[in-house]
Design a protein around this nucleic acid. Sequence first.
DNA 1: CGGGACATTGATCCGCTTCAAGACGCGTGG
DNA 2: CCACGCGTCTTGAAGCGGATCAATGTCCCG
Lengths: 233, 233
Amino acid sequence: MYAISPADLGTEKTSVQRRRPARSAGAEGVTRRLTPGQHLFFESDRAAFVYKVQSGVLRLTRTQKDGRRQVIAFGFPGDVIGLPCEGRHTTECDAITPVEVLPRRCDISEPSGMDPQLRARLMEAALNEIRMLQDHFLIFGRRLASEKVAAFLVLLLDRIGEPVGELQLIRLPMNRADIADYLGLTPETVSRSITQLRAQNVIALDDANTMVVRDEYCLRCLAEGDAELCACA
Amino acid sequence: MYAISPADLGTEKTSVQRRRPARSAGAEGVTRRLTPGQHLFFESDRAAFVYKVQSGVLRLTRTQKDGRRQVIAFGFPGDVIGLPCEGRHTTECDAITPVEVLPRRCDISEPSGMDPQLRARLMEAALNEIRMLQDHFLIFGRRLASEKVAAFLVLLLDRIGEPVGELQLIRLPMNRADIADYLGLTPETVSRSITQLRAQNVIALDDANTMVVRDEYCLRCLAEGDAELCACA
DNA sequence: CGGGACATTGATCCGCTTCAAGACGCGTGG
DNA sequence: CCACGCGTCTTGAAGCGGATCAATGTCCCG
């Protein structure tokens, strides 16, 4: 869908990082910047690096033959993404906001020569990813759409929530379609669920991608299917 | 739902949940045997070992507060299961057939003293698990129940299919409820989908847990949503 | 100001869940 | 050997929730 687009179009005020190797995958230890829509890697790509996300948000997806897309995960700052299997990436990855990632050379097949510390971190990252995928399954398997959406918002809240006075703010980096493909729903259903949460005064929307959590306890109850425990219902 | 009953009968009949204090978690390198329903570990257990499955089939599950169960994966011979996160198991695990596993001591936090070969295998196992979980997502995200079930049968076919003349045989080690909880369906819907596949002459059932794949090509088409490509529809 | 991408809302339809009943296989005990 | 009970699988009928299709609203950016 997206063609390779020049990376030096927008938001280039930070440093003089103009000598980025063109069209190369990057270099060890040199921060790589992506603009929204730009790909970091594709499925089946030979994996030269794993990437530590420094800022921004990435989207990890797999697509099936019928064109349907599954969002496997979102990559937030602090995440290590791009762990390969048998030397190849197992998902597609593109940026949904301006992104900075730090590439680390990653030759899993030659672990003997690898820095022990890096090796340990890689293992830790892999085990963490396993747990996050399992958590994702629990959300994905929720019965009602509203529960899925609430659980997703809780996830975001814990990950990128920003305190605003007594309450918390969530700046949604992804659009409704991304949320839908993460949860196994349609964008319309996601929108309806959000509208419903707003009607219950659990959240408030500034604009479509900026929400204030007005009743965090209630949101967490709804996320677990305990609608009864929540006075908002 | 399940009665507590002694599990040492040696019979492999009904699945019996038997909570057993893991006073003898096993010993490094000594094959451990489980009877159906017996647990290998529980969620949040401190993880002393990972296990290589030698024979039989295990079920890895996570349960949520409302009692709903999500089958995360099945452990087949050759699989390495029980990879911990932060020193603890992230799922529950019990046997659904008689099982033999080989425990390997696994102190991820102390990787320096670990045999490099074992370390490499652990990493490989972790990366493989990530890919398998991602594959699971694609199946879970299929639109129609019949596609999910077909995709699941293809998975089993490739994993434990037994050639029988020209065709292939699948001995289902798990019941309909397990399949349902793996796919995010109800047992009734799984049953109906199987009935439908049988009516289309794609499969034939000997008994409920023994099926012959009569048209493998068609099954694979249905699994990918290409019902049109299949004359059986 | 106008165009495009995205979000919301509405109406309808379909597939799955739910609840219920019956069938089947298997082990036990008479 | 057969009757019984239990767990599982199958099948049926009804209701509901989300998908789909369509129209409108909103924001952003040129």
